[in-house]
């Protein structure tokens, strides 16, 4: 196989634990979308005990271990999971906040737009949303000492950008696009939900709660 810069870029991104998607790196994503390239990448990763995996909504690719055959791999995976769990509650609260601001109550999924100004105007109009943001900021340890909603929101967004959940769009730094890391998160949540047998509230219960 001859040298291909895009192949190199994809491999480097996958090995750096990125989720390759249309939003985070369009060129790489389009490259992986082609079956032949996917096979080559997978073959390459197999040689180092890894493989190319895809999120269930098919919006993102990531690199996963073939098997957890050594204690080293197992402990690394557990360590990663622990750090994921630390922020989980804050992330869930953030998802609820964004969903409650959306007109159609749509959840944040890959490709969705996040506008800081829209979030801020909704938060500033509602005390309950302000409290939610305050709580998220504490749980994600992003707020600092500032009491202003704007500063807190900016810090949370910055944190989500650092964690590759959001990608800034345009030059203003106030518009973002959700990446397929959310898809990976939902897959993880789905597994944990069935593993820990967490009940999904029925529609009737949800209606009752709303009432």
């Amino acid at each position: 196989m001859s040298y291909s810069p895009i192949f190199e870029e994809v491999i480097m991104q996958l090995l750096a634990q990125s989720v390759v998607c249309e939003i985070s790196s369009p060129e790489c994503f389009r490259f992986v979308e082609q079956e032949h390239n996917r096979e080559q990448i997978d073959k390459h990763l197999h040689a180092i005990g890894r493989h190319l995996a895809q999120t269930s909504d098919k919006l993102g690719y990531f690199c996963a271990y073939n098997v957890l055959d050594t204690s080293k791999k197992r402990s690394r995976t557990q360590k990663q999971f622990e750090s994921f769990v630390i922020d989980l509650e804050g992330i869930i609260d953030w998802l609820r906040l964004v969903r409650s601001i959306d007109q159609d109550s749509r959840p944040l999924v890959a490709g969705a737009q996040v506008k800081e100004s829209e979030l801020l105007s909704a938060i500033e109009e509602s005390n309950s949303l302000k409290q939610q943001l305050e709580s998220i900021s504490q749980k994600l340890k992003t707020g600092g000492k500032s009491t202003e909603a704007r500063a807190k929101l900016t810090a949370v967004l910055k944190y989500l950008v650092e964690q590759n959940y959001l990608k800034p769009m345009g030059g203003t730094g106030t518009q973002f696009m959700a990446t397929a890391k959310w898809s990976l998160l939902y897959d993880q949540l789905d597994f944990i939900r069935s593993y820990d047998a967490i009940e999904i509230a029925s529609e009737t219960e949800q209606q009752r709660e709303l009432l």
Binding site: L15, Q17, R50, A53, T55, F62, C63, A64, Y65, V67, L68, T77, Q78, Q80, F81, V85, L88, E89, I92, D93, R96, L184, D187, Q188, L189, F191, I192, R193, Y195, D196, I198, E199, A201
Partner: peptide
Amino acid sequence: FSGKFKKDPGYRPNIDSVETPPDCLIQS
């Protein structure tokens, strides 16, 4: 998950005993 965290504030998911975790949980 929001309900779970409210009902059980100390809840921390644990996958230590999962023999063969799915791909989404074994990202290298």
